[in-house]
Simulated assay, not measured.
Amino acid sequence: MKNWSWKKIVLLVAGVLLTFSIILLSWFYSSIKSTAVNIHEPLPLQVNSRQVEPLSVKELEPVSFLLLGVDEREDDRGRSDTMIVVTVNPETKTTKMLSIPRDTYVPIAGRPRHDKINHSYAFGGVQMSHETVQDFLDIPIDYVISLNMEGFVGLIDALDGVQVTNSLAFQVDEFQYPKGEIQLTGEEALSYVRMRYDDPNGDFGRQERQKKVLQAIVNKAASLQSVFAYREVLDLVSDHVRTNLTFDEMKFIQKNYVDSLKEVESLSFQKGTDEIMQQIWYYLVDPAELEELQTVLQEHLDKEITTQ
């Protein structure tokens, strides 16, 4: 070491750090790409009678997503416990998020009669859910992202929990949820977003909690610093998430749309009525409110309302 000057040592350390950084970045890239390939499921989705084009070949324009929280069961496709439509406008740098009550009474695409909107997943999976929601809201929906609720628990635990502002004190089984800022584990978050019977706002209160937890997950994931946490999150995503987004489209969105996610407006149905038909409980939307929400989303997507 006697012939080693401090400059050589500095250069050696810098070289080691640079090599390590390159290896680490390559690992991140290959891991994320591998995960994206695993969760990708090509879907022949029709949007306003046209095939969806990859985002990377478009000019920068508004885009829409359907988020499905799926409660799958053994030997049963299950139901879409959560249905949220997200529209993103990169020009105004804004995002709108609309929760659809799971018991909403709607025409089911490809079926001869109306039913609860979350049954569309049980009847025809992601494809039928996409067509049903798109027809119901009269907007084009470009992409679908489905999450198995079992993975929801693991994802939050991998993020070391999430923090939300709770507006209603309540208890579910052994879990206590006081008002104010609360930290949630995966199991606590699952019970938190599922509770509705003790909420004076019923399913609407649950929808708001779902959106709070969803935003908390996005914010926490964006701030991840641990390599091990990234690996665990990517493994969970690979096992429990499915989407028609390709890896290139994900990169395009991350590069061009991320600023639009900083300002999120929450929308919801508020004026509908509960009705029991043939001993089954349904939620009937108010036609005027539905038309108003359709218009808001259409304008946000810079689309003209179509005549159904």
Rank of each mutant, 00 (worst) to 15 (best):
K2D: 09
K2I: 04
K2S: 07
W6R: 13
W6F: 13
K8M: 14
L12Y: 11
A14R: 05
V16N: 06
F20M: 07
I22W: 13
S26M: 10
T35A: 14
T35M: 15
H40F: 07
P44Y: 06
S49E: 12
P54F: 06
P54L: 07
P62W: 06
L68I: 03
G69W: 00
V70T: 09
D75S: 15
R77Q: 05
R77I: 14
S80K: 04
S80C: 05
D81I: 03
D81E: 05
I84H: 00
T92M: 05
T95Y: 01
K96V: 02
L98T: 06
S99M: 08
R102Y: 04
R102W: 01
T104I: 10
Y105C: 08
Y105V: 08
R111Q: 15
P112C: 07
R113N: 12
R113K: 12
D115C: 04
K116F: 04
N118E: 00
A122S: 15
G124F: 06
G124A: 09
V126F: 06
V126A: 15
F136K: 00
F136R: 00
D138P: 01
I139G: 00
S146A: 14
G151T: 07
G154L: 08
D157Q: 08
A158N: 09
V162M: 05
N166Q: 11
S167F: 13
A169F: 03
V172D: 10
D173A: 09
D173T: 07
Q176T: 14
K179V: 15
E181S: 12
E187Q: 14
A189E: 01
Y192K: 04
V193C: 05
M195F: 10
Y197A: 05
D199C: 09
G202W: 00
Q210R: 03
Q215C: 06
A216F: 08
A216C: 07
N219Y: 13
K220D: 13
A221M: 15
A221G: 08
Q225Y: 12
F228M: 13
A229G: 11
L236A: 05
N244A: 06
F247W: 13
D248F: 05
Q254F: 06
K255C: 03
K255Q: 15
N256V: 01
D259Q: 14
D259E: 15
L261W: 09
V264W: 04
V264E: 02
Q270S: 10
K271Y: 11
K271F: 10
E275V: 10
Y282T: 02
E291M: 11
E292H: 10
L293Y: 03
L293Q: 00
L293D: 01
Q294A: 08
E304W: 02
